[in-house]
Write a protein that binds this DNA or RNA. Sequence first.
DNA 1: AGGGGTTAGGAAAGGGGCTTTATAAAGTCA
DNA 2: TGACTTTATAAAGCCCCTTTCCTAACCCCT
Lengths: 414, 414
Amino acid sequence: MKRTSRDIRTANRYEVLRQIIAASPTSRQELAAATGLSLATVATLVGELLDLQMITEVGFEDSAGGRPRGLVAVNASGGALIGVDIAETYVHVELFDLGLNVLARAEEDVRPGESLPEQVVSHVAAVVGSVVAQAGIEGARVLGVGVSVPGQVDRASGVSEYAPNWDWHDVPLLDLLTEHIAYPLYLDNPLRASAVAELWFGAARGRGDAVVVNLGTGVGAGLVLGGGLHRGVSNSAGEWGHTTIVLDGRLCRCGKHGCVEAYVGASGIMLNLRESSPDSALLHPEDQTATIAALAEGLRRRDPVALEVVRDTVRYLGAGIADLVNLFNPEVVVLSSWVAAALGEPLVTEVREAVARHALPRPMAATEIVLSPIPTDPVCLGAATFALEGALQSVGQKNGKRTTPTRSRAHHAR
Amino acid sequence: MKRTSRDIRTANRYEVLRQIIAASPTSRQELAAATGLSLATVATLVGELLDLQMITEVGFEDSAGGRPRGLVAVNASGGALIGVDIAETYVHVELFDLGLNVLARAEEDVRPGESLPEQVVSHVAAVVGSVVAQAGIEGARVLGVGVSVPGQVDRASGVSEYAPNWDWHDVPLLDLLTEHIAYPLYLDNPLRASAVAELWFGAARGRGDAVVVNLGTGVGAGLVLGGGLHRGVSNSAGEWGHTTIVLDGRLCRCGKHGCVEAYVGASGIMLNLRESSPDSALLHPEDQTATIAALAEGLRRRDPVALEVVRDTVRYLGAGIADLVNLFNPEVVVLSSWVAAALGEPLVTEVREAVARHALPRPMAATEIVLSPIPTDPVCLGAATFALEGALQSVGQKNGKRTTPTRSRAHHAR
DNA sequence: AGGGGTTAGGAAAGGGGCTTTATAAAGTCA
DNA sequence: TGACTTTATAAAGCCCCTTTCCTAACCCCT
């Protein structure tokens, strides 16, 4: 709420690093042009990042007749970030270098009976240890671990206030994890993780207002407003999945009726399929992944049943997304998570048409609807991004221990 | 999108003035405590406002044994602000002093045949002239005129992009008004006007995230996010009225089906009444105001038909507001506009219960639902507030002509 | 009446941030 | 080699906020 000039600095630091990651290698000139900052400011920010060893000088580029431009690039080996995606049935973790390339990944299943906090925490500790070993990274280089857990999260205290899938209430998850993991930890939920991934590396980059729609087993939205994540007063903004789309409609697993999720979540889609074609071979009872995959495959060969199911689903999805367009008036709506990835462009095409039917023409004309361009698991990437943000945030702090900005990098050792 | 330290200054200036208006007279100490700013900063901001003659020193207050606190208060006669509310059937205008007290008001009806832009503009010019004359204000003291017009508005260029009620398309309203009105003009729509009124003077004051729900002939929401108005990429965020609440439901005047407005807008409520009790004496066909007034009166005497209609309406309204709570996770939801004002607390009580049934428990627990505490027309007040913001914005500008901050106020002339 | 004690408010200094301007560095081209 | 161009850093300036110090103004007590 209260803004200070430090926030400006932090935002600019983010912006510069984002740009470097996106267009590595790049010159200070290009960064200044892309960010709108002055050359001097870019130079000092680049200096900071060089000191942090997050980026390195990698050579020179000819200029038009004058001194050549120095190039900087991400120092991939300057550190590692870990993203943990805790979901209902698995714990997935990826270890990234600073270019946000995946160096290692690991996964463990969480069986239905193993959902006590202590059990989940030991899974997490195991997979985190595994990726660190796998990547052959020394622990000191791990800048942080971002952890995504479904439901409502108090990121400041690190408490999982409510996780619907396991009926957790006020589990002090961060404290439990701290006992097993020595790296700095950052906790949030998958909606915000994938939103932040889009903001840094995906379709929301450089956009002021964006909505990231997650279509998976659960559905929800991550809100990027004014260039940053909107969290709401208790960090639970974006709960679009349990928004009412059909009053007194289909029963949702949340206990209410007519929620968006009941129609467009993975099990909602399965139900749409079952209702329209109960005997379809596309249906794999008890297996969401297989059913969605079969549906995707059916779309590719233009199977009429698959087309029908998608059209049916998009009736709801289109109306739901149109609501988001009307309310937020975003520049872009990004479709993310595994169902969206599986169904791909055919889905997006249908969604665009359906949203256009429901949304007001003016806001609709101002917003693009696209598939997430992020090739890996956006939740892991986003969780890792929380760790990256955390590492960058503490740069300017008093306890930074870097009292004299040493700036000792060899200058122009050509 | 790009923030600078000036934005911080502007925000602080707003905050200090808001506080002074709210708690006039007040001391610098109190202001510092209320805003979280240092005493020094408050002192310089107060100095600026004194120089602008927006506030004056009005005396002293005993301190606990030490030097007495100087008190400042709004300088009511330091200027005047005008708010214009252009609606479907009328143009309403109010002239405020700097304490935002109404000094004069005027109204003209817009008859159905008179909805050409030129005709509306001449109405506006007439009422603006009328209030200035009525208040006996010299023109130089009018700091600005805020104009609210329904629909989509480009506030930068001053174009009414689309006004649904009159089927206006890209009307250069500000240019037309400039020909008749010499004061600085500010254009926006009623949703944002009433939101800004709540932000400055109403239930959203001091809140980071708030949703102002307008219940009138049309319905919509004004979004206060991060302490400021959220506009969206094309200044049309908050179009909640045409959000789908019942897929394939009742036909809305926008041409689509199942919009919130079709159920909870004034004519939606009339339809609810007609459907449940076609012969009710409460129903005044063709007269929304009378019907809503009759309904309100019915509520007061606990008329079962009225109760039934409200309960019916709240079924939809509760679900719609619950969607807003889930999506935005606001600190407060403010019910505003004339239908909300007419139905009053009985409506709010019902709404609270209904929202609680539909919204997720955690976000719901964090948000209050209240009636707008603003006693006058919030749209006029909000429009005037746009003018106030405009007047404050240009303080720090280079062309401010106040090169040497004169600070010539007589100090301590007791 | 004249000192302490206490509180308010202003002025100055300081720190963080960004930009503009000057200067140094490193090339190109004639 | 010298003039020109372009880049990068350093210096200076401005804005904004805070902290610190000092004076102003009042109380109370002697």
